[in-house]
Structure formats: structure tokens, C-alpha cells
Design a protein around this nucleic acid. Sequence first.
DNA 1: CAGGGAATTGTCAAAATCGTACAGTTCCCG
DNA 2: CGGGAACTGTACGATTTTGACAATTCCCTG
Lengths: 237, 237
Amino acid sequence: MQDIKRADVRNRLLGALGTQAFELLQPGMERIDLPLRTVLVESDQPTSHIFFIESGLASIVARTVDDEAIEVGHIGWEGLCGTHRLLRLETTPNRTFMQIDGSAITVPVELVYRLIDEDAAARDLFFHYIHTCELQLAHSALANGRYNMSERLSRWLLMCHDRIRDDDMALTHEFLSLMLGVRRSGVTDHLHILEGMHAIKATRGRIRIRDRAKLEEIAGGCYGAPEREYDRLIGSR
Amino acid sequence: MQDIKRADVRNRLLGALGTQAFELLQPGMERIDLPLRTVLVESDQPTSHIFFIESGLASIVARTVDDEAIEVGHIGWEGLCGTHRLLRLETTPNRTFMQIDGSAITVPVELVYRLIDEDAAARDLFFHYIHTCELQLAHSALANGRYNMSERLSRWLLMCHDRIRDDDMALTHEFLSLMLGVRRSGVTDHLHILEGMHAIKATRGRIRIRDRAKLEEIAGGCYGAPEREYDRLIGSR
DNA sequence: CAGGGAATTGTCAAAATCGTACAGTTCCCG
DNA sequence: CGGGAACTGTACGATTTTGACAATTCCCTG
């Protein structure tokens, strides 16, 4: 295993750490690939590492006993997986897995504990991140409860775009319908609407963002609040 | 101000604290009444105290710039208001206010900080509580996205019943529609359905739980997971 | 204790969404 | 190049939710 240099790290949380804090974690860091559908956190199964996402998209999915499921959180290069460990829990009922392949830097939980016990600034950084995750959860609830499909679809595409940083995104209608918890043909219909407004261009297995501003306009208040809070607390680049 | 004795405290979090931990907070405790609509946490306004709810019902409401709002969290005698302070934040965009009047014990934030810095068990207790709140948020998103109105209405009534501990609850259709983020007349229709199944009895401005088991059956997987996790982590009485 | 007004509840047509089915298209692999 | 799988387009009745309006109940005031 080769040393991971600060300059080579894309993750925004690791980037926001002070030099000393980074160096404390550095010996435990390991780079891993995350192919599609890799499970980072299995429901009710203990995890030993924190995953700082470098690229790709992970999502947190909540599921009920009668097998209803929906995506409730989005994690990319701005975040980490395993927040429950930061809250000193061994397990969580929610599942986290890769929706778009990518990579991450893992750090053993114990090392992160040592950091947050010693370094109040690092502790606050991670705690503030947990808070932005809560905000994202709250806005998922709000979006699902009060916004229609076009708005939610726009929100999802925008959140994905933030994390992939490429106008071309490999997404199928089927996949989006699972994420949003709606039926697949509804996604098709509403993608046509978005395409009719020239906000996107959809081809087989692929969606290209054509006019991000328009997409934000369509999403309205459904998108943006958690993102602004992240920038305020963690800092934009 | 009069000393608050351990035996007089109903709040489950305070009850779960060790004797020493309780005694550390005790000098800062103050009992306050919380009439209907009292704001405990104002959006983006700093708060100086943690509120340990003793009775009544507080709810966390998320709101967007285009004035859509919905309840995303329920807090009663099992919880506390001001979790963002535990995550070392001054403010949060979400509003928390009383939906059913009650009372609380307040403790200055600094005193709570001292406790969690000194006492790992107390720290873990509060962090685990934050985790159950996140779970509640996730399940609000799930409920809004995947369950219909009867199920969500049942869920809400059950969560309220857990916290009020009285079969008679003062609730109007209008109020419930605001909580669930749906049309008021839809609430009326679905209350009739629940009443037709003899799960509840609705009279003007009042709903009586008649058959809690039936209500749980109607709610299905929509209700219960966060509550079970709370009992597992914080402990049932 | 009667009357007026506000709060609360009831009803129903219109719109959105769902469930399902099936056909057409594109891509991949042998 | 052909066959099959994956993906997308479309249709339609059933169901759910919305939006507007009507009816009822309660409470306050004179």
C-alpha cells in the first residue's frame, strides 16, 4: 500500500481537515474501487471503516418490513459513509451502496475516533457533516410529501450532477423509478417533459444535462437548501 | 427555582442517565410550561438550551423557499429538542414548535457539553438518540414516498399516541392535513375509513384511539422501525 | 338565550398518479 | 449477422389526491 498524498485527495471532508488532522488519519488510509452495487453499509451489520467517497455516487436506502424501499440520502465526493459509527453505533438499519461506480478512501473507525477525541475542529467538521445529512433526509421527506414528479426528478438529477461532475450521466428510467419510488413509465413521461423544455437530453441508458439553470428552476424549492447549508458549514471550494 | 428530583422526571433520556450524570445537569435544570405553538427552535436562530420534553408533543417542520412545509420529526417525553446543538451547531434551518401543549426541563447547552465531554456513557446516549431521530427522518421520507394516506395517517396517530399516552387526542382535520402535507378533505375521508374499521372514533376537534392494534395493522411497515430502534438503543421502561 | 361568525367537517368533480400490459427499439454477445 | 436481453414508448382503466364549495357545530356577545 502506497502513501496517499494530500494533493491527490478529492474528498471535500478530507480536504477540509487541517494538516495535522490529515496526517493523523493518513497511515490508516487505503484507496479502494467501488463497482456498481458495492455495499458499503449493510443493514444491521457492523462496519469497521469510514468511507470517504472520492468519486461515484452512493445512496442510503430505507426499507420497511413489508419491503417498501426508497432512497433517502445521496453521498458523493462531498461526504462519507458510516455516519452511524461517528454517533458511536455499531450498526444501522439503513443500507448504503453504490449507484454509480467510483472509489473511496477508507479509514479504520478507531483512527477516526482518535482524531475526533483529540481535535475539536475535526470533530466539529464531521458533526456538521452529519447535520447536513439530516437536512438532506428532512428534504427527502419534504420532496416526497409536497412536490410532484417533475420537481423530484429534477432534484434527483441535480443532486446526481453535483456528485458526478459530468453532464453525461449513465441512468436508466428503471433505475430512476427505483430511486424516486414511482413507477417506471411515469419517469419516462416526465423525462419527456424535461426534454421538451430543453433542460436535458435523454438517450438510451443516458441522460445529459443540457441546461442546469432551467432544471433548477423546475425543481424550485425542492432542491438546494441542504446544499447551501453544506457550503456554509463545510465550505465551498 | 426549586430543585428537580430524579423521581419527578418523566423524560426517558434524563431517566436513562446515570446518577452522577443526572446530578451534573441538575443545577442547571429548569422546568418550563410549553403552551401550544411555543417555538423551541426557530429557523436559523441560535438557541441556548436543550429541551428535555416532559409532556406534550413538539414537531420538527422542514420548509422550503417556496413555502412548502411538512412535519419531518416528532418529539415527546422520549426525546429532546436542540439536537443540532449536540452536533456543535449554533443554528438549524428547521423549526421546532409545540403541536400539543406540555412541559419540558431545560438545561443550558454548555452544561450538556460538559457532561458529554466527561461522561462517555452519557455522550453515547445522546448520540444514539440523534441516530433514532435520523431514522425517524428517513422513515418520514419513506412514508411520504411509498405509503398512502390511510397508512400515513395511522402512523401519525400512533406516533402521537405514543407521546400523549391518552386515548383521547385533541386534533382537527386541518391540523392533521398540515402535518401530513395533504389536502384537509383527504384527511376527513380517510378518518372516516379508519372509523369504519373501528380503529378510532372521531368527533369535532377530537380523535379517540379505539383499537390500537388495528391501527398498527393498517399502518403496516409504515410505523414502528424507529420506535423499535429507540427501545433497543435507549431501552424501554 | 338567540343570533352571527368563525372554526370545523362533509361532499364531489377534476386532475394526477398508479398498475399493468404490450409493442417497439437499441445494444450486446456469440 | 442473428437472437435475446435490456431499455424505452404508449395506452387505459382504477385509484388516489386535489381544489372548490357546501353544510354543520361551536362559541361569543349582546
